[in-house]
Structures are given as C-alpha cells and as structure tokens.
C-alpha cells in the first residue's frame, strides 16, 4: 500500500475513533468537558524539546567535531570511553558492516537511522549523571564529534539546524515495518 493511501486510511480511522469514543463514552454530550486550561507559551518553550528527522525542533546554535572533542572528553568519555568505543556505556563509534554478522555491533555509526535522533537524545538524556545540562551549542558539538568519529561527517563540518537533518546515516535504509505474525506454529 502506498504511503499516502495508508495515511488517508489512518486519518479516517482516527476521526472515526474519536467520534465513536466521544458518543460511546459520554452518551448524549459529545462536546469537550471544559477541563484543563490553555498551555502557556512559557510551558511550551520549556518542555517542547523533541527534534524530528525533518529538523523541526532544532534550536539555534552550531558546533563542530573539533569543539565537541573537548566536551566529549570532559563530560562523556568517562562512561563511553575516550574514542567512543571503550564503554562501559553503550558503544557509540564503529561497528559498520557488522549488522548481518554473528556478532553485530550496534552504534550510532552502524545502526542509528537519523542524525537528528542523536541531538534529541543527548539534549534530553545526557550526560547520564546530569541530563539536560548541556547548552545547545555543546549538544551540536558533541553530536558533530560522534558523527565525525564514525566517519560520517568531516572534522570541520558545522552542525546546525540546517545541516544536521541533511546528514545521511549509513543505516538509514536498514529498517523495515513489523511483519508479524511471522513465525509458523510448527
């Protein structure tokens, strides 16, 4: 099925569920209940931190691998290793061409399909002992360093809201949809 068809089918279904649920759950009254209050701009600014593959959500700022090397060394290397390979925290670098082998090594370079995910994840969850403590420029720089260590971008490439979504990850086409049930009974 082509994507647009599927999207349309989903939208129709979504509307259907919302309408059905409304009448089904509430009886005659199918309007809003008037609970909650409008979100403020400040609330949205503080919490809306996700970054999509399109680059939507990326903040202003920029960084390069050269700048990232210093930050990685002081804030990340104690868990991920000085080259991003040693651990003990998950290996970030290397592993390319191992996914179909007996011992696959899943890293940012070998496995992650989107560079934007790296920005999103570092921004929200890293460094592990002090999440959300890096400034936007620092997140760009560390992102650049990890991508450069994997040979995906050049050492002097500038990562920002425009360039990062354009980074082509080696395993970008490595993912498939859920085909289950896929295992026969016998």
């Amino acid at each position: 099925m082509c994507t647009s068809k599927r999207r349309l089918a989903r939208s129709v279904l979504l509307c259907g569920i919302l309408l059905t649920s409304g009448t089904g759950l509430l009886g005659a009254d199918d309007g809003p209940l008037g609970l909650g209050r409008p979100a403020t701009e400040a609330e949205l600014r503080a919490w809306d931190i996700d970054v999509a593959p399109t680059g939507e959500g990326l903040p202003p700022g920029q960084g390069t691998a050269q700048e990232g090397a210093r930050i990685f060394s002081s804030r990340c290397a104690s868990c991920h290793g000085v080259t991003g390979k040693e651990g003990p925290a998950p290996q970030l670098v290397g592993g390319q061409d191992t996914l179909a082998t007996k011992h696959p090594v899943k890293t940012v370079g070998s496995y992650w399909p989107y560079a934007t995910t790296l920005y999103d994840y570092i921004r929200r969850a890293m460094p592990f002992p002090a999440p959300q403590s890096l400034a936007a420029e620092e997140v760009y720089a560390v992102t650049a360093w990890i991508l450069a260590q994997n040979g995906i971008i050049a050492q002097d490439a500038v990562m920002d809201a425009v360039s990062l979504p354009q980074v082509r990850m080696p395993n970008r086409n490595g993912f498939t949809q859920d085909p289950r049930p896929d295992v026969p009974a016998k």
Partner: peptide, 13 residues
C-alpha cells in the same frame, strides 16, 4: 535486528 542485517521497527504488540 534480523539475520540479514535489517531491523524491524515499531514492533509494538
């Protein structure tokens, strides 16, 4: 991750 190196995504159930 499958033996051919591809990975299934959104295998939610």
């Amino acid at each position: 991750l499958m033996p051919d190196g591809t990975a299934r995504q959104f295998t939610l159930v």
